[in-house]
């Protein structure tokens, strides 16, 4: 088993396509996006319509890339968008896939 990092980002659906473009630029190999809803300091994100919808993005990558990803997201999005992120250690079967 290989040690990797799972980065989970919860943010606004409004910036989904921007994030996907950024990921491509930064060399992220893959990610999974799911619709989400919840509550935070920017109020209830009920997902009743697009402007109140959240997404959860999961990225499995190596430690270095995970750190880079967190730094960049913080710099570019934290000021103006509802966004949280956290990382956990995970084990994967294949090393070069992530």
């Amino acid at each position: 088993m290989w040690n990797k990092k799972l980065v989970t980002i919860v943010t606004e659906k409004a910036i989904e396509s921007n994030l996907e473009d950024s990921f491509k630029d930064w060399g992220i190999k893959g990610y999974t996006i799911t619709d989400a809803r919840g509550k935070g300091n920017r109020g209830v994100r009920s997902a009743v319509w697009d402007q109140a919808a959240n997404i959860r993005i999961e990225v499995v990558t190596d430690g270095k890339m995970a750190e880079l990803l967190c730094e960049r997201l913080k710099a570019e999005y934290y000021d103006n968008y509802a966004m949280i992120l956290f990382t956990v250690d995970v084990q994967t079967l294949r090393d070069d896939k992530f």
Partner: peptide, 22 residues
């Protein structure tokens, strides 16, 4: 507007507070 404008503005003027315009 509450469909086209919010989506465009959220991206292009991110500093603006959505609570106001929505």
């Amino acid at each position: 507007s509450y469909i086209a404008a919010p989506a465009a503005v959220r991206i292009a003027i991110p500093e603006a507070n959505p609570s106001y315009y929505l």
